[in-house]
């Protein structure tokens, strides 16, 4: 993590804050572990106190004091509104259309927001990451999807090694042919900026840069010729409040980890 040239926050912090702002208060959000979980909880602790966080282990309305290391940590059940079985969370909640937002990370993304969390290299070559988990159906059935991952040529690839989760498929209306209820990726947040699908082609388009990032940096970190919006915005830097809450959350989490080690 690099300090953003004296700006007082890191690129990762900017990414997390920008992603958290995408989650509306009151939204029912199916949360992936790691960066999405951090951003979703930042949203809950700042502008979206009424958001309902769902984790695939079956916790609904989770309010973790510290960030979970794993998707089924006891912390998630402790203050949850309800805890249900895994079939119930996927069938009655996700598949039934009760989830407004799927909040996902990935190992790789392509220009249409399709995601790979399964394979690094080819499946035949058998380099297996095998982290499909809940992603395929979250990407299918959540009303919309927020994606978060760090910008790099290894992550933003021209062709995925494996399609674990469908985004806008081949672009245009091609996702709709699959019959999924969800609309697919609405936004992708990276450590450099914000990408949104073009209204027609559905190709990811750089629509905003975080302060200090450049179009050249984003282009270099993208494995295809990156489209850039004509009116390119600049992300509002993190507020003091956002930074304070995020850092508190992370230091509480660190302290809790050390405690279990001792």
């Amino acid at each position: 993590m690099t300090e953003g040239e004296g700006r007082g926050y890191t690129a990762d912090e900017m990414m997390t804050v920008a992603a958290s702002r995408e989650l509306n208060d009151g939204a029912v959000c199916f949360v992936g572990i790691g960066l999405p979980s951090q951003a979703a909880n930042l949203a809950r602790l700042t502008h979206a106190p009424e958001c309902v966080l769902i984790y695939e282990s079956g916790t609904i309305g989770a309010k973790p004091e510290v960030l979970p290391l794993s998707i089924g940590d006891g912390e998630l059940a402790e203050h949850a509104d309800s805890v249900v079985s895994v079939p119930e969370i996927f069938n009655y909640w996700l598949q039934a259309g009760r989830v407004d937002v799927g909040f996902l990370g990935a190992a790789q993304i392509d220009r249409f927001g399709n995601l790979n969390t399964t394979v690094v290299g080819s499946y035949g070559g058998r380099r297996c990451a095998c982290r499909g988990g809940g992603c395929p159906e979250i990407a299918a059935s959540a009303r919309e999807v927020i994606i978060m991952l760090r910008h790099s040529p290894r992550a933003f690839v021209d062709e995925l090694a494996f399609v674990t989760s469908v985004g806008h498929r081949h672009g245009g209306d091609s996702r709709r042919e699959l019959g999924y209820a969800g609309a697919g990726p609405a936004v992708t947040i990276t450590d450099l900026g914000v990408l949104r699908p073009d209204l027609e082609t559905k190709e990811l388009t750089l629509t905003a840069l975080h302060p200090g990032s450049t179009v050249e940096e984003a282009r270099e970190a993208t494995g295809w010729e990156l489209r850039v919006a004509e009116e390119l915005g600049t992300t509002e830097p993190p507020t003091e409040e956002e930074l304070r809450v995020l850092r508190d959350l992370k230091s509480r989490t660190e302290a809790a980890r050390k405690e279990t080690k001792a």
Binding site: P87, F90, P136, S165
Partner: peptide, 25 residues
């Protein structure tokens, strides 16, 4: 997997769901 176990517990030969379509699985 969740649906496969549910089908097994219900003595059904298979389960039906909305998923997998368009993925490489």
């Amino acid at each position: 997997m969740a649906n496969r176990y549910s089908a097994g517990a219900s003595n059904l030969p298979f389960a039906v769901l909305r998923g997998y379509v368009g993925t490489d699985l």
